[in-house]
Every structure is written in C-alpha cells, then in structure tokens.
Design a protein around this nucleic acid. Structure first.
Length: 604
RNA sequence: GCCCCCGUAGCUCAAUGGACAGAGCAAGUGCCUUCUAAGCACGAGGUUGUGGGUUCGAAUCCCGCCGGGGGCGCCA
C-alpha cells in the first residue's frame, strides 16, 4: 500500500541530496512511525550524516552527527512540503516522518482487507518449493506434549511460509524401526499378545506401557541376584533375535511389527487430524534402509567418506578435513557401522537426496529437537560436499524440550505427559467456563467451541515462546485463559463477530472522513502491518512473530471495543465506517490465528 | 579440551543495529441498566549477568570473565 507515493518521495530525497552536494543516499529503509495517535512511515539520516561527517573530518572540520542528521532531515522536510498521499511531514531528532492522510489511508486499509478476505496478508509467489519435515515421532510410543510442540511448530511454520508465497510440502518421517520399536514387538509377543485394549488412544498409550515394562525387565538393577541377571540376559538375547528376524524379513515378526506399528500410526493420524496438521508426504525410517546403503559407495567414491572397514573400522566422514577447516567444528560422523548396518545419518542423507531429486525441493526445513543442532549442521555440510546447493538454504528449526515442573520427561521410565490427557483436561475446563459465561449456547456447539479454545490454548503456549527455549509445562498456566493466551485472542474475534451479527448486514463501502479516535487509529495501524509481519516472520522462520502480532492486534481490538461504540453510533456514515473496520479486524484476527494453527470461533 | 544456546521488571517471556527496553502473571486502585467483564482503564516495578571494544547510535555485533543448559565417530 502507498508504494507509489513512497517511491515519489524517495526520488525527491535523492534529488535534494544531489543538489545539496550531500553523499549518495543508499537504500532507504522505511519503518512505521513508532508513536501512537497517528501513523506514517519513517526513515533516518544518521548513516548519511556519519558519511558526511567523515568527509568533513578529513578537512579538519568536526561536526555532531546527530545534529547534522537533524539538519538534513529538516532540509528534506522543507523541500518536500506536502507530498501526494501524505498529510504532513516532520523532522524529529534525525528522523524524517511522513504521516498519511487519515481518511484516505483508513479507507485503503479497510477496503483492501475486505476485498482480499482470507487472502489478506498473503505474499506473492516466490517460485521456490519448501519442504518442512516435522511430526516425526517414533512409533510404538504414545504421542506426548513434546511431540505436540513439534507438530504445532512445524505446522505453523508450514502455514507461514506457504502464506508468504512459497510452494510448501508437509512431510512426516516417523521412526518406525530401531531397538526401541523392537523392544515393544518382543514384549508384546511374549507377554501381551491379544490383550490390547479397544480405542485408538487407549491402544497407543498401552504400547507405551509395554515399552516401559519391557525396559524395566531388560535394564540391570542394583543388587540383582545371579538368577535375575541370567533372566535379564536371556530376555535381551530374545530381543536381539527378534531384531535379527525382522531384518531377515521373518513373516511372523514382520506381521507383528506391522500390526503394532499400525496402532501407533492410527493414533498419530487421529491426533494430527484433531490438531489440524495435514501431512502431504509420509516417509518411514524403515523404508530408508535400502536407499541408505546405496548412497554409501557413492560417498566413498566421491572422496567424501573414508572406508575404514578393511582395518575393522567403520565408514566415516571427516567433515572438517573435507571442508579444509583447521579447527574442529563439524567433527566426524559415522556413515556405516563396522558391521555394515546403516545409521540415522545414512538414512537422513538418503532421504535428503530423495527430497532434492524426486520432490525438487529448493529449501529443506527440519523441525527437530535443538539438541540435534550439531548433527543437523553435519548433515547440511555433508550434503554441501556432496554437491547439493540446496543445502545452503536448508534450515534446522530447533526447539527446546518440554519438561514437567518435577523434571524431564523420560519415555524409558514412562514419565511422559500424554497429549490426549492434557487436551481432554483442557476441553473439560473450557466447557466449564463456557457453561458459566454463555449458558444459552447449545450443548453440541459448546463441545465444539471447547475443543477449539482448548486446542488453541495449548497451541499458543507452544508458539508464544522462542523456539530455542525450553518450556516447563504447567497445566494450570497453560489452561489459564487470562492474559497472553489464545482464548484472549479468540475472544477478540468473537466480540468482533457479535457486533457484526448484531448489525445484520455489512455496508458495501464507507469513508473515514470523521475525527477518528486513537483506538481506531491504533487498530488500523496494526491491521495494515500484517502483510509485512508475515513476510518477515516467514523469512526468519519465526512463527513467534505472528503469535506476538496476533496478541497485539487482539489487545488493540479489546481496547477499541470497550471505548468506541459501533452499532450504537447514531451518525450512519460513521457507523458504516466502524462496521467495516470491525469486519477488517475480524478478518485479520482470523488470518493470523490460522497461521498459528488456532481456530477462530464465532461464539464462546 | 572444543562447539552451540541462554542470562532483560519479584516470576514467565518479547524486542537481533535505531527514537522514551515492552507484554503477561503476581500484588494495588477504579469500571458491568450500554455491541459477551474469558474484558477495559490507571499507577508501581530496569546500572538488559559483568568488564572492555566497534559504531553517529548496542539488550542486539566482537573479545574476555561469571553463572545456567545442551552437544561432541559406530544412539535416534
């Protein structure tokens, strides 16, 4: 908006500087004027003044940079007068502030939002394809709140980059094989065959219980007797035998594995559907073993990997050495065990190759635990050595772990917070609040809204904190619906909606040629910033920026709602303008919430 | 030993080179015959861990130190 007018002003500024024999103006960066009450764009002249000061210093003249910047800004302000599209211009402390014409700007913002609707804020196509890999829990475990953080962060990132203009593919990569998985298959077969409970979530959580009990049987205990030790070792031998049979493709073991695996995947798909995560492509770790073996020889031949098998060693990549680094930074990682089996790294490299070659991905994003930072850097560097230029644009969005107030979660000890338990508790509490606040709402609708609000609260708790930071999950805090939370934002949407419902119909157009209150100005200002916020957040891969923005917008709307009458406004032209503003605010809130994987209810 | 992340109000967190460092929670005061009080308004709370440096300008960039967390060739 107002791009044309801004460019005209830039031309005037350049012409002025040339005429005054000032140094060349570089790229002019504009930001919103940070004061409330009016709005406009601002740029500063400190750079220019500093350059000029250095020139003058060469001839022995000393000047104060801040003062000079202010002089330049004032000179330009006087030169500009009242440019088209702006009501007035001022120079303050080295900054040049251009204020928009209130009526024109308001109308343009509101009309744009209402014309574009759900697309308001959407960026133009970037002609680049992004694949986001997230939602990679191991199968044979139940979905816990750490997985939830991963899934919500990944989905928010996907929606963000997609909305910003990137073609986006959502990929899930569950770990469906490995010692942990085999442990469950062994224990199920030996102790629990046919005892699985009904119900998708019950069965998913039951698998975790088996895992915990099996781990207990297989781990050494303090002061164990010789008989206990023998028993434990016998169990471990059985488990190893199951793994060997799986590897050989033993039909019975494979069938057990597939059945139990499917129970986990059923639970995973149900939860992803519930929280709004539509995965496009499923990769499975078990399917990457063969492709992984296939890339090893290629990496050896290209001189990237070193084969030390002849001396009883493994196939390794000395990353620093291959990059020509003198100090250790990326270190060394193993590509193939000395027994010839693949590792996680091998499969990840093979999968990356598939993403680049078969899916033609330009940017590969990974939402993975921040503790794997070094590992991810190793993957990217090996891909670079391998010749995949896309690796430079690949990105690891790490996130901190979710822990309980009493300590870290541990799947092995069964100390996990099940996502469904938390979600159900949230639904119960929200329903209780709705019953109290809005008793007329029919039961069926109440349930639906409770789900939208409960899930929203959980999602927002995961997104409103910097991804690098750990979250100590406290049920009470997450379900506290006051303050900086999703329900606060959702309620702003509900209030906007109830005004519009009360008004009946939305005027097709309106002008803003009356004296706007500061609340209206603040609201319009925030709405107008949404498209730029989306672009910046997407390029930084930072859903948090949207979470902050949505909160600010909701806060501005709540203030507006409290002070400024809409439906009760007597003068029709003002009422029309305010109704359209409310509709624009509702739309923008909905669009922002959608990027955060949070639903915008009409009532609550 | 080396690498990464973090240190901001009593607590939880924003702000990554620009104007007076902002929110929420907690504690305090006021506001429901008015579009839903899951709300609004008003105060209070800060040498941005610390010492240097770069810059016209630093919470932000660089170096040292202190404190916390994480990681480092056959786990995933």
């Amino acid at each position: 908006m107002f791009t044309h007018e801004r460019q005209a002003v830039e031309q005037h500024i350049r012409a002025y500087c040339a005429a005054q024999a000032l140094p060349e103006v570089g790229e002019l960066t504009w930001s919103p004027v940070p004061f409330s009450g009016e709005w406009g764009i601002s740029t500063s002249f400190f750079q220019l003044a500093a350059t000029r000061a250095r020139q003058l210093a060469a001839s022995g003249e000393r000047v104060n940079v801040a003062q000079l910047a202010q002089e330049i800004a004032s000179g330009i302000a006087a030169h500009l007068g009242a440019p088209t599209g702006f009501s007035h211009v001022e120079a303050v402390r080295g900054y040049l502030n251009l204020y928009y014409s209130t009526a024109e700007y308001s109308q343009r913002v509101v009309d744009t939002v209402l014309a574009q609707g759900i697309d308001f804020g959407k960026g133009s196509p970037k002609n680049e394809r992004i694949m986001v890999e997230y939602a990679q829990p191991n199968t044979h475990h139940s979905f816990h709140i750490g997985h939830h953080r991963n899934a919500v962060l990944g989905e928010a990132l996907s929606r963000l980059v997609e909305f910003a203009g990137f073609e986006t593919i959502r990929a899930s990569y569950p770990g469906d094989i490995g010692l942990g998985v085999i442990t469950v298959v062994w224990a199920y077969n030996k102790f629990y065959r046919g005892q699985e409970p009904e119900g998708i979530h019950e069965r998913g959580q039951w698998l975790l219980k088996i895992y915990v009990e099996a781990t207990n049987l297989l781990e050494p205990h303090e002061g164990e007797t010789a008989a206990e030790k023998a028993q434990r070792e016998a169990y471990d031998a059985e488990r190893r035998d199951v793994y060997r049979k799986w590897d050989e493709g033993d039909p019975e073991i494979r069938q057990l594995w597939e059945m139990t695996r499917e129970w986990s995947l059923e639970e995973l798909r149900a939860i992803l559907r519930l929280i709004g995560v539509p995965i496009d492509v499923w990769f499975f770790e078990s399917q990457m073993d063969t492709p992984a073996k296939a890339i090893v020889d290629e990496l050896i031949q290209r001189g990237i990997a070193d084969d030390e098998r002849a001396s009883g060693g493994a196939v390794i990549v000395r990353i620093d050495e291959k990059l020509g680094l003198k100090k250790e930074k990326y270190r060394t990682n193993v590509l193939l065990r000395s027994d010839g089996t693949t590792l996680y790294l091998t499969k990840d490299l093979a999968l990356a190759k598939v993403k680049f070659e078969q899916y033609h991905v330009d940017r590969s994003l990974y939402v993975i635990d921040v503790r794997q930072s070094l590992y991810m850097q190793q993957v990217f560097k090996i891909l670079e050595l391998w010749g995949f230029h896309q690796a430079e644009k690949s990105y690891h969005l790490g996130y901190g772990f979710v822990s309980l107030p009493e300590g870290a979660m541990s799947a092995r000890r069964g100390r996990v917070v099940s996502f469904m338990e938390v979600a159900n508790e949230a639904f119960r509490r929200v329903q209780a609040v709705i019953t109290e606040k809005n008793p007329e709402l029919p039961e069926a609708e109440r349930r639906l809204v409770a789900e939208q609000v409960g899930l929203g609260a959980l999602a927002y708790a995961m997104l409103a904190v910097d991804n690098n930071k750990d979250i100590v999950f406290e049920m009470d805090a997450a379900l506290n619906f006051d303050g900086h939370t999703a329900p606060y934002i959702q309620n702003a949407h509900v209030r906007a909606n109830s005004i519009l419902k009360k008004a009946g119909s939305l005027p097709g157009e309106a002008v803003f040629d009356y004296a706007l209150t500061s609340h209206e100005i603040e609201l319009i200002d925030l709405i107008s910033r949404f498209p730029a916020t989306v672009q910046q957040a997407a390029l930084e891969y930072k859903p948090l920026s949207i979470a902050s923005y949505a909160y600010d917008l909701a806060k501005a709307f709540h203030s507006f709602y409290h002070v400024v009458p809409v439906v009760q406004t007597e003068q029709e032209s003002i009422r029309f303008a305010r109704l359209r503003l409310v509709a624009a605010a509702r739309q923008t809130l909905a669009n922002a919430l959608r990027l955060l994987v949070i639903q915008a209810p009409d009532v609550m």
